[in-house]
Design a protein around this nucleic acid. Structure first.
Length: 245
DNA sequence: AACCAGGACGTGA
DNA sequence: TCACGTCATGGT
């Protein structure tokens, strides 16, 4: 049960193994002409890129749409929203749930997610991004968690990537990887694993953003729910499967 | 052709 | 608190 790596060591290895991730992608409202975003909306190191409200909204919508869903399907739903002329706070406020559901069909769980999107925009209508950014990180988090359909991971994703507040995002890959290297149990709670990461790292926005994205990147390769491991031991020097040595 | 994906919520122990 | 069922499309 002795950990093979610390949280800090894992970050060092991941950032050496993979290229800079540049999350969160902003591909609909992204301003590609500036050259700060690539063709899929990922920024190349511009962590301080000042987002407009519609870009923050895109990130928040993406965070909802990708819940338990691969990014391809979520991204298609974002484009579909734009194609249906629903890609703005006001249009989403005016739209019926059924219209939204139809537009985001490709993301799956479209009825639930349409309701969550509605809840989000109604919240944003009386509590703007600007107000939200004026709050302390923990208060803003609580406000987001009050929105039905937005749980801890979605709230933290919005905080970290749209509002640029250092709140560490925990996801299924993060849990599996931490279990794999022996620093957490399989059933570790969201909050406790988050506390572990946040207490092991400097509270740094860039580190938090990159680390989570790197964990997802690494998880996609080696920590799929059904272990399928592409036996590449150079890219993955700290193999998975919690078998004790 | 099953299985999986960048979760959240309601319910009943 | 926790274990489990439900929600659903599209790629492999």
């Amino acid at each position: 049960m002795t950990p093979r790596l610390t949280i800090r060591q894992l970050y060092q290895i991941l950032s050496k193994t993979y290229r800079q991730q540049g999350w969160w992608p902003v591909s609909i409202t992204g301003d590609r002409q500036t050259g700060l975003l690539d063709d899929r909306g990922y920024h190349a190191g511009r962590y301080d890129f000042p987002y407009h409200d519609d870009q923050k909204l895109e990130i928040a919508l993406g965070a909802i749409l990708t819940q338990n869903t691969n990014w391809n399907n979520a991204s298609a739903a974002l484009h579909s929203l734009a194609d249906h002329g629903l890609f703005s706070l006001q249009r989403l406020l005016d739209a019926k749930i059924e219209q939204i559901a139809l537009a985001i069909r490709s993301a799956g769980y479209y009825n639930q997610k349409a309701q969550t999107v509605k809840n989000l925009v109604q919240f944003l209508n009386h509590c703007s991004f600007e107000k939200l950014e004026g709050l302390a990180c923990q208060s803003a988090r609580d406000r987001l968690l009050d929105i039905r359909g937005i749980g801890p991971e979605t709230a933290d994703s919005i905080l970290l990537y749209a509002l640029k507040q250092p709140s560490f995002v925990i996801d299924a890959y993060t849990k599996r990887i931490c279990f794999g290297i022996g620093i957490a149990t399989v059933s570790v709670s969201y909050e406790s694993l988050q506390r572990l990461f946040e207490s092991s790292l400097e509270r740094d926005l860039v580190v938090f953003q990159e680390y989570h994205a790197l964990l997802v990147q690494h998880g996609k390769h080696y920590y799929s729910r059904k272990p399928h491991g592409k036996g590449d031991e150079i890219l993955c020097p700290f193999w998975t499967s919690g078998k004790s040595s």
